[in-house]
Design a protein around this nucleic acid. Structure first.
Lengths: 196, 196
DNA sequence: CAACGTTAGTGAACGCTGTTCAATAATGGT
DNA sequence: ACCATTATTGAACAGCGTTCACTAACGTTG
């Protein structure tokens, strides 16, 4: 077995991912190139391709970690009453992405998104939706809580997707957080209205 | 003055835009390249740059026409009672983009989006929001109809943005149209709940 | 009618991109 | 000490947006 001259395989992988995040945050999606990435960790494009399945692979790993981080934050939301909980979840989601616009953007954008998603990807998202469905269930809606959770997530996603590309102001002057709150309140109001 | 050998300036511009739409629809955002575009209209990349301000210029023109088309469709929605009208507007919006995913996608995506938007762009969007605010006003909400219209548009945009990149199924199995309907109904329900 | 000046159109060239792969160098096992 | 294995390299390829010296066609003018 021939091992690298100076670095450990896994260590390098971690460094590459960290560098990728940095490049994204600093220069946007276009700044994340194979050569820039290689230079960041003092190696060459070829090595990147040895560690990852192309640039899509790097991006997918960045995305994976972002999802994991988000899940951790979401799990940190204490279980208070449903309304406060939903508002807190929305705040976590919006705040998370405001802090990492570029990474979040790379999620949904660009020619690099493969088309086929690994299972952990779907499972992670599924888990997040469940955390939303939970407090909604407590509100005893007429419809399926899961479907309502999906709808609420999509509403907030609409805000976040535009904010991530710095285009929210094309539509409104309202702040992302306020908009997310409004979406939550509207969901609650419509559930309560339908319940009686 | 020297005029082109075989084509008229404006005619060529129109042909280029039509070709750009076609390339987008057939091969997605990555298929819209200067060389492919040039070949489509039997000319050269240089000429494209003569007619437009780079590829961003081409894309912006495609977007402009899409917005104009959408405005025309929106204006075609008859003014029935508020609920029916809002549902019809949502249907137009969603249906419009399902028909032109790639063009719609090019709106929000890619390294080509310039950052600065011409006035007609903002005015066009403003007009669309007004059409949504109109029936909402008729519902006599407690809050500003304009702000509510923006919120509703964002909710539907969340659906459309994911559907455009074929990623809606990551979150839900519900159909775009049903989701849009739900968003409208929720807005109406929450207004009615808040009004009494 | 011919020559001119203007200008639309051309396509080679530049620097960039992702990606591949033969060659190299370094190492663990024998 | 040698060998077989393999991570690493960096040159090379095709394609990208974009620029620009050049060509060729045209309306105008003499």
């Amino acid at each position: 077995m021939a091992r690298p001259r100076q670095y450990n395989h896994d260590t390098l992988r971690i460094q590459v991912i960290k560098a990728a995040k940095l490049l994204l945050e600093e220069g946007g999606p276009t700044a994340l190139t194979a050569r820039a990435l290689a230079k960041s960790v003092r190696t060459t494009p070829g090595t990147i391709y040895n560690l990852f399945d192309g640039m899509s692979g790097v991006l997918q790993e960045v995305n994976r970690q972002a999802l994991v981080d988000l899940a951790r934050l979401v799990d940190g939301v204490g279980d208070s009453e449903p309304r406060a909980r939903l508002l807190a979840l929305a705040e976590v989601y919006v705040g998370f992405m405001l802090d990492r616009r570029a990474v979040w953007r790379a999620f949904f954008e660009g020619p690099r998104i493969t088309g086929v998603f690994p299972d952990w990807y779907l499972a992670q998202i599924d888990g997040l939706i469940d955390r939303i469905a939970q407090p909604i269930t407590a509100l005893e809606p007429k419809g399926d809580p899961r479907l309502l959770a999906e709808q609420l997530l999509l509403s907030v996603h609409g805000i976040v997707a535009l904010a991530a590309i710095e285009r929210l102001d094309l539509i409104t002057r309202q702040k992302p957080m306020d908009l997310a709150h409004a979406a939550v309140e509207r969901m609650i109001a419509s559930i309560r209205a339908g319940a009686e």
